[in-house]
C-alpha cells in the first residue's frame, strides 16, 4: 500500500499551520538564520516550508518520498530506506555522515546539522510513526483548507486528475510528481509551474537509481573477471618465460 500526500497549490492560503504542526510533532528546536541554509525555508529544524511565489501562490516544500528514491539507493548503510508504505525514513543509528544522500537527491531535500558535533541528516519522514498506526501526518491533519491531503497514492492521483478535468484551465494539466524521477509520493497540482521545487533542472522521468544500477550489477563479474584475466596473463607470461629458458638451455 503506497501512501501519498497531494497538495493543491490553488487551495493553500499560506497559513503555515502545516509547518507549525511539523515542528511540534517532531520536537524541533528554534530556527536561526544559519549560513548553511538554502534559501527555501527547509533546514535541519524545518522539514517542511512554504515557498511564497507571486500572486498569492504558496507552495509547500517537503521531501518528495520518491517511489525509487535516489537517497536510499545512495546510502551506503541503508540508513535511508523505503518502508512498505512508500515512505522514505531515516535511521540515525546507522548513518555514518557521508552526506552522499544530499549529493544524490534531485530535489535537494536532505539537510544537515552542520553546527553539531554529532550531526545527523534531517528530512521529512511523512510522520511514519503516525502513519504506521493508521493516522495521517501532522501537516495534512493541520491544514485548515484541505489544501494538502493524505491518502493512498492511486486514489490521490485519480483525485488530482478529477480536479484538473473538473474545471479545465484552472490547473496546469499535469500532476507534479506522477512521473518525475520514476514517480514521487508527494504530489502537487498547481496553476503555476513547480519546476523550482527541484534542485537544478527539472528531472526526467527516469528513476535516478537506474543510472548506477548497470555499474553496480557489473561489480562481482568485474571482480572475478579481472582476477581471471590477470591469472591468465600471468600463466601465459610464465609459460613463455619457461619455454624461453628451455630453448636457451637446449641451444646451450
Amino acid at each position: 500500500m503506497s501512501m501519498a500526500i497531494l497538495t493543491d497549490i490553488t487551495k493553500c492560503i499560506g497559513c503555515f499551520e502545516c509547518v507549525a504542526a511539523c515542528k511540534t510533532v517532531n520536537g524541533h528546536e528554534a530556527d536561526k538564520p544559519y549560513v548553511f541554509h538554502i534559501n527555501d525555508g527547509l533546514s535541519a529544524h524545518n522539514w517542511t516550508s512554504i515557498v511564497q511565489k507571486p500572486d498569492k501562490h504558496f507552495v509547500r516544500k517537503q521531501c518528495r518520498h520518491c517511489l525509487d528514491p535516489a537517497c536510499a539507493s545512495a546510502c551506503p548503510v541503508a540508513a535511508l530506506h523505503q518502508t512498505s508504505e512508500g515512505i522514505v525514513i531515516y535511521e540515525s543509528h546507522k548513518c555514518i555522515g557521508c552526506r552522499y544522500c544530499m549529493i544524490a537527491c534531485p530535489y535537494g531535500i536532505p539537510r544537515y546539522d552542520w553546527d553539531k558535533p554529532v550531526p545527523y541528516v534531517q528530512k521529512c519522514n511523512m510522520c511514519y510513526e503516525l502513519v504506521k498506526h493508521g493516522k495521517q501526518p501532522a501537516c495534512t491533519a493541520a491544514c485548515p483548507t484541505q489544501a494538502t491531503i493524505f491518502g493512498e497514492r492511486k486514489e490521490l492521483i485519480a483525485e488530482a486528475h478529477r480536479r484538473i478535468e473538473e474545471i479545465p484551465g484552472k490547473y496546469i494539466n499535469k500532476v507534479f510528481g506522477e512521473f518525475e524521477v520514476g514517480g514521487t509520493s508527494v504530489l502537487y497540482i498547481s496553476d503555476i509551474d513547480l519546476g523550482f521545487l527541484s534542485y537544478v533542472v527539472i528531472p526526467g522521468t527516469k528513476a535516478l537509481p537506474k543510472t548506477t544500477a548497470t555499474a553496480m550489477e557489473a561489480v562481482l563479474p568485474t571482480f572475478f573477471g579481472v582476477g581471471a584475466v590477470m591469472g591468465g596473463l600471468h600463466w601465459l607470461v610464465r609459460r613463455r618465460q619457461k619455454l624461453q629458458r628451455e630453448n636457451e638451455g637446449s641451444e646451450g
Binding site: S73, A74, V77, A78, M216
Partner: peptide, 13 residues
C-alpha cells in the same frame, strides 16, 4: 558500519 549494514545498490557501499 557498512560492514554490518549492507546496501548493494550503493556505489559508496
Amino acid at each position: 558500519q557498512p560492514v554490518i549494514y549492507w546496501q548493494f545498490h550503493s556505489a559508496l557501499f
